[in-house]
Design a protein around this nucleic acid. Sequence first.
DNA 1: CGGATCTCAGATCAACTGAGATAA
DNA 2: CTTATCTCAGTTCATCTGAGATCC
Lengths: 165, 165
Amino acid sequence: MGHMQSAHELAFALRTAYLSMHRQTSAFLLPFRITADQFVLLCVLAQRDGITQQEISTRAASDPNTVRAMLVLMQKKELVARTPHQTDRRALAVTLTKKGRMLYAEIFKQIQPLHDVLQAPFLPEDTQALISYLDRISEAMTSRSGQADRQNSVSERKLHKRCQV
Amino acid sequence: MGHMQSAHELAFALRTAYLSMHRQTSAFLLPFRITADQFVLLCVLAQRDGITQQEISTRAASDPNTVRAMLVLMQKKELVARTPHQTDRRALAVTLTKKGRMLYAEIFKQIQPLHDVLQAPFLPEDTQALISYLDRISEAMTSRSGQADRQNSVSERKLHKRCQV
DNA sequence: CGGATCTCAGATCAACTGAGATAA
DNA sequence: CTTATCTCAGTTCATCTGAGATCC
């Protein structure tokens, strides 16, 4: 009984932590006229430019249709451009515009204090342990039962450097 | 430089873990015709019935307006009822209907395998450590800078038993 | 052909903002 | 008068489904 309860607690703690981080990030990004989730895409593109929407979905741990909708919004704001892919004519290559790159650089510079707050409660080894725990959850909740298959596994994801809200 | 990067990694890992859990939960709850976030409210009410919308917001780590909108949906589905509060005539007392209680009980019974998957990667002490880490994040990201004040702190929340998606 | 990648239309929901009523 | 609780109208965004085009 203490056992089953702890799964409840874990799920709730994960939810609360994520939501609180997301709210802080949204509030921080407000003056930049960009949402936290859009900033994630900005990060993904800052790491590797000219990739397809498909690959963005994978790297951002998101759904392709969702990513497309977000990219449409970001294209209207002239943060990204979508040009026909060179070799695969079905696909689009998504690139950061100059404006997009500048916005990313500006946010990257200013977001440090927020990241400090996020990391303040932890020693470096705590942070690594926590990241490892969280990755195990992602692993357990994707490769497993349910619809799973269109999801990306953490082991794949680990090959890329990460970026973030 | 390894230092600033790890905040990025942490934020991304938290995001990915939460989203993967949320997707699995949503998929699991699909047959029950209820969303993961609505189930959170169901849990909150199952623990303590007849509370105000305000208190639900606090316990669910959510925004009062958001909670109200969700309760309206849940009321249409006859899962909750909102009746005038006895002592405070501004407030509404939210209670589970019989249907709501039965749905909660049914889900509670069947959700065990999902919770097992969530908890599988961890020894009991790992789970507790992880919960404690996550609570520290919630703490750091609420009591601090920004809009903060309408948010509930973890220390308050710890007084209540928790419930969850 | 089968499978991958995208587009589009449309639905649902969550998350807010801001204005205002009402009552403590 | 001030503050708290809720209602309502309206916005924006994320998420996803399903149908279909195009191309590998």
